[in-house]
């Protein structure tokens, strides 16, 4: 077997994955997507020579990762995560739909397609509510809509943007919660790490990329069952499942990341997350 890792930027996580593969003596193919092209007619064997027989998709750009994954999968090469999972997790609306279908508790969400529809849905949800982009991460363009005036201003700004995805308005109820959320790293059918992520003092978002701090989260059976059902609902694999502690409704799942960053979790976890991912890839390759 040969394991592949496709990337467009080497972050701490990729370095740890490379290190783990090296320590296991794995023939790791590293491919920078920015320096390559793919002939979609190439035979599987030719693609495997460059990319490996099982490939970890680790691009920071969602569309790059998804596109490379689709090309490889089309020739029967195993990719982690598979493109169905990448597609669902890379789009907040598709994620919410999968959660609702699987009856996983999630914040009340509305989607609309015009200024009028967006204002009406935010009125229905009540203020404050939260406007999020369909695609994107690290809390970028996530805006609390505190009242109708702010909602109108934000939606009008989005109407002026050129990307058609920006004109689809995904608005969620504002969940009354402690200033933290829970990040679970799921690898296959196991939670390998669970942490609290605390908002930095000057922000309401909890993303580690925004300077949030972390500490271990004590997982109980009920929580584990919920997280594993969530993972299954979007197709499984290597995932970062984010949950909130709603004061009214208990645990709610609000986001699932399919190219999970784990430096925050790794800093307080006993297990080697990168190595768990590599072991999972090896297991998948043997199937």
């Amino acid at each position: 077997m040969t394991l592949g890792l496709v990337y467009d930027r080497i972050r701490v996580e990729e370095k740890e994955l490379i290190e783990s593969a090296k320590s296991r003596g794995i023939d790791l193919k590293l491919v920078d997507t920015k320096q390559e092209y793919i002939d979609i007619h190439d035979e599987k064997e030719k693609l495997e020579e460059k990319y490996g027989t099982t490939v970890l998709i680790r691009c920071v750009s969602y569309f790059r990762g998804f596109s490379v994954g689709a090309c490889l999968e089309n020739k029967g090469i195993k990719v982690i995560n598979n493109t169905k999972v990448l597609q669902i997790c890379g789009n907040k609306l598709l994620t919410s739909l999968a959660l609702v279908k699987a009856k996983i508790p999630t914040p009340k969400t509305m989607v609309s397609f015009s200024l009028e529809g967006a204002l009406e849905s935010s009125e229905k949800l009540g203020y404050p509510s939260v406007l999020k982009p369909l695609i994107g991460s690290w809390g970028r363009m996530v805006v609390p809509l505190k009242d109708r005036d702010i909602a109108k201003a934000m939606i009008e700004m989005r109407e002026e943007m050129s990307n058609p995805l920006d004109k689809i308005y995904y608005i969620q109820e504002y969940v009354d919660r402690p200033p933290r959320d829970i990040r679970c790293i799921v690898v296959g059918d196991e939670i390998v790490s669970a942490i609290y992520r605390y908002s930095p003092p000057d922000d309401w978002r909890t993303n580690v990329a925004r300077g949030g701090t972390v500490e271990p989260y004590p997982v109980n059976d009920e929580f584990e069952d919920l997280i594993l059902r969530t993972s299954k609902a979007v197709g499984g694999g290597v995932l970062g499942v984010d949950a909130m502690e709603s004061k009214e409704h208990g645990i709610l799942i609000h986001e699932i990341n399919s190219t999970v960053e784990f430096r925050g979790a790794a800093s307080v976890s006993k297990c080697n997350i990168a190595d768990e991912i590599i072991k999972y890839a090896l297991k998948l390759d043997r199937r």
Binding site: D8, K34, S61, Y62, F63, G136, S137, W138, N163, N257
Partner: peptide
């Protein structure tokens, strides 16, 4: 280095 894109993240 590339600037952060709209689709960048996890």
């Amino acid at each position: 280095a590339e600037a952060v894109g709209e689709d960048w993240g996890e």
